[in-house]
């Protein structure tokens, strides 16, 4: 669609701009403020320049949280994206069964995040939870409250349970947009199942899969509530991801300067990834036009 040049359109955007700016810019400036100063006595601030940033970037604790964060995001992406696509491909295409599948699959997405944590907490309890009891009955030594490996498995299973449906729904929406004629043509040509997937379904799903990838990356990168309720970041620091570490520093230890510097670094990382994806997406859109 060709758009008309019209600078008065700013008036239509103004309410959004004001509301989001109030929520985004003021708090961000507060954080920047904290990150450059040090408070020894309440109410008195000393300028410390970039010292907090240097401290954070050099601290092993931050590195460890960052590595855990990337490991977690990487693992859930390589599980959730292929699994979601596979489920979407195998789902009924339309009719009552498709509706039923969609409703049931969307259910985990609408459960408050602390309840997701609570559900898995109960489900995985070693003595009375179905998962914990089952695994132990099968002879595995499983206890997510004191074994890092068990805790990781539980947190990853929980995230797969919680978010794979998002990928399914997106991929399903992409598949819905494919015209039946393509499949008939492929059948006449005697195309294999793989060829149909590779040359018809995958290209059509490209945009939605980029969105799925982006949303899953960003949301898993800022994950807080679910692992916090499930494991509290433990055992030890085994499942302390960036957000949990940040809240620990800010609220738990009241280390405002350090927490603020961490926030800014964290935010810049998210912003960079966001920009990369956004460029990819708009390029893709222009390519289609």
């Amino acid at each position: 669609m060709t758009k008309t040049e019209n600078n008065r359109a700013w008036f239509l955007v103004l309410p959004v701009l004001l509301l989001v700016a109030m929520n985004a810019i003021l708090p961000l400036m507060t954080v920047v403020n904290y990150s450059l100063q040090e408070s020894f006595i309440a109410g008195f601030w000393d300028w410390v320049g970039t010292r907090h940033y240097q401290d954070v970037l050099a601290s092993e604790r931050f590195h460890a949280a960052l590595i855990r964060q990337f490991a977690f995001t990487f693992i859930i992406l390589i599980i959730e994206v292929p699994l979601g696509v596979a489920v979407a491909l195998a789902m009924p295409k339309k009719g009552a069964w498709a509706s039923l599948c969609l409703v049931l699959m969307a259910l985990p997405l609408l459960i408050p995040w602390n309840v997701v944590g609570a559900i898995w907490n109960i489900f995985a309890l070693p003595e009375i939870g179905l998962l914990g009891w089952g695994l132990n009955a099968l002879g595995f030594d499983y206890n997510y409250t004191n074994q890092p490996i068990s805790a990781w498995i539980t947190v990853i299973l929980m995230d797969v349970w919680h978010w794979t449906s998002l990928v399914v729904l997106l991929a399903y929406a992409g598949l819905q947009s494919i015209d039946e004629a393509y499949y008939r043509a492929a059948k006449i040509d005697g195309a294999s199942r793989w060829a149909v997937f590779r040359y018809i379904q995958l290209p059509k799903m490209k945009t939605v899969l980029i969105i799925a990838f982006l949303l899953r990356f960003i949301d898993s990168f800022m994950i807080y509530t679910e692992p916090f309720v499930l494991t509290g970041g433990g055992p030890g620091n085994a499942t302390t991801f960036l957000s949990i570490d940040l809240v620990k520093a800010a609220v738990g230890e009241f280390n405002l300067g350090i927490a603020a510097a961490m926030s800014i670094i964290y935010f810049l990382m998210t912003l960079l990834v966001c920009w990369l994806f956004f460029t990819l997406m708009t390029k893709d859109k222009e390519g289609q036009a």
Binding site: V16, S243, I244, L246, S263, L271
Partner: peptide
């Protein structure tokens, strides 16, 4: 606007309480 959808809430907790 989109970057705000991607801002981690943990970053904003304390400033929001103050604001």
């Amino acid at each position: 606007l989109l970057t705000n959808r991607m801002a981690p809430p943990a970053v904003f907790v304390l400033p929001f309480v103050e604001l």
